[in-house]
Design a binder for these strands. Structure first.
Lengths: 157, 157
DNA sequence: CCTTATTGATCAGTATGCTGATCATCAGTA
DNA sequence: TACTGATGATCAGCATACTGATCAATAAGG
């Protein structure tokens, strides 16, 4: 493993680099301007109306300081709105707008195409195995990053 | 694959996030202050003395505009030096310093430990398979990113 | 030889990600 | 109730990555 080409860390960076490039290309070809990070946040807000930012960050494993800017840009594009919480005045509730819903629906085919394209060198069985192995490795190392995944109780497997 | 947890792109981001965190933690514990990107560049310069920045970028798949800042920081730490090329006055030759060599040697155990730690949830066979699948997927999609890998002729396999 | 295209390096601008700090607010306890 | 600690959000600062532009220098062509 002395060779760079065999180091998991190097390959992780490279695969992520390609994944982002493929995502952006497919989404732009479909006529949208949304990053992978913005898409994940938008989808999570759609699935969890009135979620607060910290809980959202846990759901998609973002750092809490990163989420602020992501939501800023989604709000500026008119896809989500921030609303003050009645229960806790520190907290902001996040809601998807009608335009956000339309965008999310319209963009989904491009997102799925990107997922296939980034593993186009693999057979379907190999792609499934790659997903399984990444999930397993990630699960065992979840707490090693500052932004671990925090699944909702209903989402356990 | 509608679920985020099964999307290769999401897993790629998450795995990379963990890989970086593990790398930084191991390297810091060993008493050094070097990012994964800086380490890869330093190792590539050590293996290819007097390499220019564009060729270096191709060897480790960095964007040409990213390499400038990375070399800036390596130079500021005294690990590499930039030297004007005699052949082509546009080009800068990169050389590792003695301190760079010492750092590279001393840091290697921590880097290798990090590689093992980021796949600690996998058996050795599974880790090898993950590396194989990532390499295969990356090879097939290499040209889809702005910073493709450009291997030297002697490094083909 | 001179024009044109290409190339190596850098820069401005934008978007993640992180460290560590701050501020307001809330919760638990003496 | 007053104090203490924890929490939600944001900010400043730094390091990747990328888009697109610029500039100097080289290469290729007629």
């Amino acid at each position: 493993m002395t060779e760079m080409r065999d180091m998991p860390g190097h390959l992780a960076r490279r695969f992520q680099q390609i994944a982002v490039a493929v995502f952006l290309a497919e989404v732009e070809a479909a006529g949208f301007d949304l990053t992978p990070v913005q898409y994940a946040a938008l989808a999570a807000i759609a699935a969890n109306p009135a979620i607060d930012q910290i809980t959202l960050a846990g759901l998609i494993a973002y750092d809490r300081t990163t989420i602020t800017g992501v939501i800023d840009r989604l709000a500026q594009k008119g896809l989500v709105v921030r609303r003050a919480s009645a229960r806790d005045r520190r907290s902001r509730e996040l809601l998807i707008t009608d335009e956000g819903k339309r965008t999310l629906e319209a963009i989904t085919p491009a997102v799925e195409a990107a997922q296939r394209l980034m593993v186009r060198g693999l057979s379907a069985a190999e792609a499934n195995e790659l997903v399984r192995l990444m999930r397993k490795a990630i699960a065992a190392a979840n707490d090693l990053s500052r932004a671990p995944l925090r699944e909702g109780a209903a989402e356990e497997r």
